[in-house]
């Protein structure tokens, strides 16, 4: 059992096709966790950052002697979690929205910067900056992985800060902005989506982290 089990259980397809009672048989908590720990670093398809995490999980399990549920859950995490997980499921909707805003803010700033830069340089440059931030988050979400998740998290903070700062700025000193930016008036011209988007992004990216390790 210990010979054959660790291999198939870490590939999603094999895990799915396994008969439902199989996991029950394998539940000898401590021993299972240990073999799992030993096997973890050689997972065939696992990504680097994931190996580290699943190893830590198994270790924690072995120490605390978590019951069978813990073991089964960590298998599920190891096997299924498409660890580019931040770009799938609800993340895919975020990718779509960020993609739309990248195109929207990007094309808008390109047109404005190239045709009438001198009219409102500050506003147009801020729109361009917003486009860059949106583009970066989109790419990070699509690529996935722990590093991209952290980078996207940071960018969502920058984005939120940008919306709030520019929004306040445009209200406090309208004369500095002869023309609107994407983030003017907290994104009012875009149905306030520019404010909601980073909050949703932060929520999703933080959740993606707490989902991965099993408690």
């Amino acid at each position: 059992m210990a010979e054959t089990a660790p291999e198939p259980r870490n590939t999603p397809g094999a895990r799915d096709s396994r008969p439902p009672e199989e996991p029950e048989k394998r539940r000898e908590p401590a021993a299972d966790a240990r073999t799992y720990e030993a096997e973890a670093p050689q997972l065939p398809g696992a990504r680097p950052e994931f190996e580290a995490e699943s190893e830590a999980e198994a270790e924690a399990e072995a120490e605390s002697g978590t019951g069978p549920e813990g073991g089964a859950e960590s298998q599920a995490a190891a096997g299924s979690a498409p660890r580019g997980g931040i770009g799938t499921g609800p993340g895919r909707l975020l990718v779509t929205l960020y993609g739309i805003f990248t195109v929207g803010a990007g094309s808008r700033s390109i047109v404005q910067l190239s045709t009438r830069f001198h009219e409102a340089p500050l506003a147009y440059l801020l729109s361009a900056a917003a486009a860059v931030v949106y583009a970066f988050i989109t790419v990070s979400l699509v690529r996935g992985g722990e590093l991209a998740r952290k980078a996207a998290l940071l960018c969502c903070c920058v984005e939120l800060f940008g919306v709030l700062a520019v929004g306040t700025w445009t209200l406090a000193e309208p004369s500095a902005f002869p023309d609107a930016t994407v983030w003017s008036d907290y994104g009012m011209g875009y149905l306030f989506i520019p404010v909601v988007l980073p909050l949703t992004g932060l929520y999703w990216l933080r959740r993606a982290r707490t989902d991965a390790p099993v408690r």
Binding site: R92, T96, I100
Partner: peptide, 17 residues
């Protein structure tokens, strides 16, 4: 996008578009 995400979230992406 909705072809690559065969869940409700793919449908919501079409809504957004």
């Amino acid at each position: 996008i909705s072809l690559s995400e065969r869940t409700r979230w793919g449908s919501l992406s079409v809504v957004a578009g």
